[in-house]
Design a binder for these strands. Sequence first.
DNA 1: GATGAATGAGCGTTCATTCAT
DNA 2: AATGAATGAACGCTCATTCAT
Lengths: 214, 214, 214, 214
Amino acid sequence: MAAGARSASSGSADKRRLILDAAIRVFAERGFHQCRVSDVADEAGVAYGLVYHYFRSKEEILNTLFLERWQLMLDAIAEIDRRDLPAREKLAHVAAFIVDSYRHDPNLMKVIIVEVTRSSHSFGARHLGKIREAYDGIARIVERAQREGSFRQDIPADFGALFFYGAIEQLLTGWIFGMLPTTEEEFERAKRLVVEALCSGLELTPTTGRALAR
Amino acid sequence: MAAGARSASSGSADKRRLILDAAIRVFAERGFHQCRVSDVADEAGVAYGLVYHYFRSKEEILNTLFLERWQLMLDAIAEIDRRDLPAREKLAHVAAFIVDSYRHDPNLMKVIIVEVTRSSHSFGARHLGKIREAYDGIARIVERAQREGSFRQDIPADFGALFFYGAIEQLLTGWIFGMLPTTEEEFERAKRLVVEALCSGLELTPTTGRALAR
Amino acid sequence: MAAGARSASSGSADKRRLILDAAIRVFAERGFHQCRVSDVADEAGVAYGLVYHYFRSKEEILNTLFLERWQLMLDAIAEIDRRDLPAREKLAHVAAFIVDSYRHDPNLMKVIIVEVTRSSHSFGARHLGKIREAYDGIARIVERAQREGSFRQDIPADFGALFFYGAIEQLLTGWIFGMLPTTEEEFERAKRLVVEALCSGLELTPTTGRALAR
Amino acid sequence: MAAGARSASSGSADKRRLILDAAIRVFAERGFHQCRVSDVADEAGVAYGLVYHYFRSKEEILNTLFLERWQLMLDAIAEIDRRDLPAREKLAHVAAFIVDSYRHDPNLMKVIIVEVTRSSHSFGARHLGKIREAYDGIARIVERAQREGSFRQDIPADFGALFFYGAIEQLLTGWIFGMLPTTEEEFERAKRLVVEALCSGLELTPTTGRALAR
DNA sequence: GATGAATGAGCGTTCATTCAT
DNA sequence: AATGAATGAACGCTCATTCAT
């Protein structure tokens, strides 16, 4: 929880932070390519020359936003994996972290997902390594579960991670696009369902029959 | 199979098709926003102005590419759903159709995924309805399976569809980004695994134990 | 009267005439520069390549329209001047000819006035000689009246012609712009008033007092 | 006199003014549509983009030039009308103001007349209201003269204004087109003649006979 | 005569970035 | 640190004109 608490903070005169927070709003609202540097400056209430005092370029603003947020997630995944929990619980925590990140600062997550993660040209390509680290972090959870016998081994860990991440990203996309409702209950339900679906599958089996009863 | 056979064909003098095919290559290579209309014209070997003879704008080229291809997929999903098959088989056919589409014309799929589907600003927003239709088509398969008792009902059909589509899209993204190998075997393996994972889950159970044996 | 009877005629298959008539409507409606050659062709119901079969360029269409109509006016002015009439009557006939030309084919006159006569760049410059001939024709009427003693000599004939033509052109402009009503009565009144004003002046004098009584 | 002193001044570093003055020269020389924004920038000796720093569009430059100059004339006409003078004197002042405006900055007046006032499509239409105000200002002078008995009432004031303005505009057109000489004497003579012609008429009468003697 | 596909120069506008103050 | 004037490359789009059929 408390994911990304820093991004919306600061009543201070930290102009750099002001610019970053303004950029989140503007990039989320209109898209990175559809807005001008001056829009960010206007939103931040500073002269737009100042943007270039703090950032080398418009891109660097986005890179900064992405990296500082994404690293939190990587750290969280790693930390979760170190805990002594069943894999399913770990994945639940990962899902919760991501969903809560969106809940906490939808604009920031929207920017990261839409402008970086889902944008293979320009930014996606640049941050491929970092994005991959997230898959790897999840894959490590799966891998350990396979070694410990709780997860099946016929689905490679990296595929499992891919599917799990893909499902969650699709949830975020649904919220971002306004295709899914964004109430608190929905967030909680989604967290539960994505883990349930990915771990136990969509088919009805004796096992999932028991799962239903829980 | 044979998905979208038309898009890469034609040694004919159909200049309109020539332009569309050139656009696929150029958009895939450098991205929609990163290339100029003249790049498309050059690639097609036609004069600049001819592009505007056939298309109202650069955007219309992309819209055309998206719509003509996406509709094939929607039709395929609907057709698959009409067959008398277990839901798992249906989903396998859907996965196969999408994967084969990528295998058949990776550039076109890359353009559609990267520039339209995963691009909420500009194009994604415009084609939201069409994109949603795909989710709905898959959801209908899941729904029927729930009614018929083969799929569990505690995971709503639309979520199931979302997760399934998300997993597949993540596969495509992996191939597009060069994060996953793109051999024939990989494509086939991926088709199988995404269905297996989504239907039976990642966890090891007595049921999946049996699945392993198949 | 019956000025420019040819311009709106022809139920024949004379495509050249069809194009010219279409050009009158299109140029009048949207302006020479604001419409495309294809607009003219569409209006004429012919393929736009045909326009280039009959005319060397878009400009030549306008030149043709201007010259064929303007020459009628020059001829009319010359013919009027040859009649044995008081100068005031001659000017009245000139005014009537121009006003009736507008009444007969407002679009054509609009094109000629707006796109050629009042457009010093491009077309005005090209047809300067022809435009000047009109001034000269009127000036000749004034000049003769001065020699014969009915017109004062302290206002040079060319100035007189300029003022007279300017007043009439302003009337046309008023109609074209929709600043003056365009009823039959207004046209007749305008004919009378422009001659009266230019010949007798706006000031009230014993002479004009008598004029009132007429 | 001293009409529009601001427009051609400034050796200062006011780049906005520099651009406006350059635009006057370029628009006058080659016409609004026949010149590129870069021509204006080059003429002003500033970078291309700076034009768009100060003006929203090429059109806005022309609008600005027209409005700032035209308003001076409207103000002048209103001010002249407020003076306690015979109508003929008032009209003489109006004529003088306009002629002097041309004398002072022929390029600016050329642009205004040719590109705006005489251009019913595009700009003329946009500024119809402002153009009409000029007619109305002159008409008010005539109207008052009619009420006070010095001008005849059988020629409506608005027609009188139209003819007077038309005559003057034709003079300007003559100078602009190079059809009339542009010496100081000619300007002064034209001022006198246009008023004389419009007030007293072209015909020789006992009254105008006396006028000759003056 | 008639068609409309094909050509390509031209131009208005945008906007990231620099820099003098 | 802070400002915003100044720069200029880049690009989408228009449209008059040509030409093969």
